[in-house]
């Protein structure tokens, strides 16, 4: 175990950790919006819409994230039409490609979780709201979504942790996030164990923080319910 190596590589690893955090936070934020939209799309009575959204969910859940990242990064970049299009300034950056892939991926998984949450709200509640003359918008805001939120919180917490793990794949498209930095240092110093252990400890810490945060949120919500 080479402690000086750990010490000298810490600044680089920290920079990688910052990039990891950025990727995770941006993808989670965009992902939850997409997930909610996906859940509603799947539940929509508009058949073409629900089919389309269903296809999106199916494709992204039945293929590995690595394929998705490579397809978005190398696959799309291959086409002249894509390179000439308006989205190229975004797609040419590995940073945005990674966020796009992570967002689409977590949107599909998260969408299913939220859909399950919405479906779990007892129909009696909806009937009661309707009987009170609530408009659908108000009903969703006051009755369905709060209950669905509480229902999905544990599962969505797990999904958030999956996004943290998934962000490590950004290293395969040149991004120097935590795993990428660790890998580069390992390849340069030929002492891989030290840096991978430090990187692993950081991921573990980040995930423990998320898990703890979700648990706190659950407890708070449970308290509000009792009142």
């Amino acid at each position: 175990m080479d402690l000086t190596l750990i010490q000298t590589s810490l600044p680089q690893l920290a920079a990688g950790a910052v990039l990891t955090l950025e990727l995770v936070l941006l993808s989670l934020a965009a992902g939850i919006v997409l997930a909610v939209a996906t859940a509603f799309g799947r539940l929509s009575r508009l058949r073409p819409l629900s089919l389309l959204v269903g296809a999106y969910v199916f494709v992204f859940r039945s293929t590995p994230l690595l394929v998705q990242i490579f397809l978005i990064y190398y696959g799309l970049g291959q086409f002249e039409a894509v390179r000439a299009s308006l989205v190229w300034p975004l797609l040419r950056e590995p940073y945005w490609c990674a966020i796009l892939a992570l967002t689409l991926n977590t949107g599909a998984y998260g969408g299913e979780i939220i859909r399950g949450g919405i479906l779990s709200v007892p129909f009696g509640q909806i009937e009661a709201a309707r009987a009170l003359g609530m408009a659908p918008g108000l009903m969703y805001r006051r009755i369905i979504l709060p209950q669905a939120f509480r229902q999905v919180l544990p599962a969505y917490g797990n999904e958030m942790i999956q996004v943290v793990q998934a962000s490590s794949l950004a290293s395969t498209i040149t991004l120097m996030e935590l795993t990428g930095v660790a890998r580069a240092i390992a390849a340069r110093t030929y002492q891989p164990l030290e840096v991978f252990l430090v990187a692993g400890a950081f991921y573990l810490l980040l995930n423990l923080v998320i898990a703890q945060g979700v648990r706190l949120a659950e407890r708070r919500l449970a308290r509000e319910t009792r009142r």
Partner: peptide
């Protein structure tokens, strides 16, 4: 269970691969 579920699978692979 905590450690293996708390770090990316890619990292587990690298670790085993090298160590």
């Amino acid at each position: 269970t905590t450690v293996v579920r708390g770090v990316p699978a890619l990292l587990v692979i690298w670790l085993l691969f090298f160590g």
